[in-house]
Design a protein around this nucleic acid. Structure first.
Length: 412
RNA sequence: CGGGAUGUGGUGUAACGGCUAACAUUCUCGCUUUGGGAGCGAGCGACUCCGGGUUCGAAUCCCGGCAUCCCGACCA
């Protein structure tokens, strides 16, 4: 894409009304636009990153057999009354609205209930199980306080997968696999080495659940690191003698453990029969016996992932995207007027490279500053100087040194 | 929801209760320039968040609201 065609542009200064690094940099570089506290629009560059993240998550979800669907953001209240989650006393971050007729509606904060309702139409035999479905969906949560840029918004994009199994054993097999799948995702996003599978309280059905916590000072959670090699941690909120006993950690002393701030980038829950019972999702087993489906839910905040990446991968000059999620692979900068840059750009896109081409007639300094801010992993400079030296100058965003490479080399 | 801070052109800032609200940047036009936000000239752009009040006079002081950020509480 030619930068002269990109409608967004960078700002010289970061917005005053943001403190968090992710919001500052993403707004300054033109990735997102703030609508109100905790509500951000995604602009061309931001959307490209978001889609790249989704592609990785989607790939991993399909590997484990997940089938993608898209549910609605508007939800009827009956199904939530059946599970006793409609009442504001029970769930206090609902956004609610109503039809002209007065019928009450909710704006989705999660999808267990409506999806379970849908699955009743399709699951009736043990032959239909196990199965899992997922979606990327906008979630609405009426947080009392939005904070930390896109790390905690009132409207955000979430990947939520729901598993349906015949029984606890079948469920647990899937659940264990999902732990690995989640770690694969964080590896591919570039921050697997600072992400810990974290023991947490299980909610209403199971005793424990797992969160995935990524270490960074920008986090709002605190974890105790149990095993730095296997990447196991315990959420501070849930750290007690009972946990230590249940996980055979009796010899672990709290004062010996490292405490770190972290961002919850994902969580996986065993739901058991809670929702299937309440909503009547059952199947007939091999003996014709009626049983309730055993469920699990698995969330990843996709927009939060993007914010997390910015928090972790940035320096004083801007963002440093990992190659797997960067909006473009190459940022091509032409210095001075040279037709050669145009040709190189055409050649690169002809061989399928993702290139942002800075063809603006602005000074070199401005192009460099913007390239650093935007944070595309490979910066390629075309100038009289580089051409004289036999090609273009390639510099990785996360490295200091640059080198001259030939156009052919770059096109490979 | 409790506490704190802050609201001034698109953006970032300035302005003692007193001239036509200043500067930088962005943007437009012209010229120059091209290896780290370059230079010169000319322009466009603001009911100083909203509503009251005090005062001869309010961006400035007071009250109320709204918004944003931060701390806390909350966060299957």
């Amino acid at each position: 894409m030619r930068q002269t065609n990109l409608f967004t542009k960078t700002r010289k200064e970061a917005p005053r009304d943001e403190i968090s690094k992710n919001a500052k940099l993403l707004i300054q570089a033109g990735y997102i636009s703030k609508e109100m506290a905790g509500v951000y629009s995604f602009l061309p560059l931001g959307l490209r990153v978001l889609e790249n993240i989704k592609d990785i998550v989607r790939d991993e979800m399909s590997k484990i057999g997940g089938q993608e669907i898209l549910m609605t953001a508007l939800q009827g209240k009956e199904v939530w009354e059946k599970t006793d989650r409609w009442d504001d006393e029970k769930v206090d971050d609902w956004f609610k609205t109503d039809l002209k007729t007065g019928t009450e509606l909710g704006l989705a904060f999660t999808h267990e209930e409506p999806l379970t309702q849908v699955m009743k139409n399709f699951i009736s035999s043990y032959k239909n199980l196990p199965c899992s479905v997922y979606q990327f969906q906008t979630k609405f949560r009426n947080e009392l306080r939005a904070k930390s840029g896109i790390l905690r918004g009132r409207e955000f994009l979430m990947k939520d997968l729901y598993s349906f199994s015949k029984n606890k054993e079948e469920h647990e097999e899937f659940y264990e696999k999902m732990k690995d799948v989640y770690m694969n995702i964080f590896e591919r996003l570039g921050f697997g080495d600072v992400t810990y599978t974290t023991i947490s309280s299980g909610g209403s059905f199971s005793k424990y659940s797992y969160e995935f916590q990524t270490l960074t000072e920008a986090g709002e959670d605190i974890v105790y690191i149990i095993d730095d090699v296997k990447k196991i941690a315990v959420n501070k909120d849930d750290f007690n003698d009972e946990v230590l006993k249940d996980f055979n950690l009796e010899n672990v002393k709290k004062e010996d453990l490292e405490q770190r701030k972290s961002i919850e980038v994902g969580d996986i829950y065993s739901l058991g029969e809670k929702y299937s019972k309440a909503l009547g999702l059952s199947y007939k087993d091999e003996n014709g016996e009626e049983k309730f489906v055993y469920m699990g839910s698995y969330g990843i905040g996709v927009t939060r992932l993007m914010g997390t990446i910015v928090e972790i991968f940035s320096d004083e000059n801007g963002i440093v995207w990992p190659e797997t999620v960067a909006p473009f692979q190459i940022h091509l900068l032409s210095l001075g007027k040279n037709e050669e840059a145009d040709k190189i750009y055409e050649k690169l896109i002809a061989v399928g490279k993702e290139v942002l081409y800075d063809d603006r007639e602005v000074n070199a300094g401005q192009k460099f500053a913007d390239a650093d801010l935007i944070g595309i992993p490979n910066r390629v400079v075309v100038s009289e100087k580089s051409l004289k030296e036999g090609g273009v100058e390639l510099k990785k965003r996360n490295e200091e040194v640059s080198k001259i490479v030939s156009i052919d080399e770059l096109s490979n």
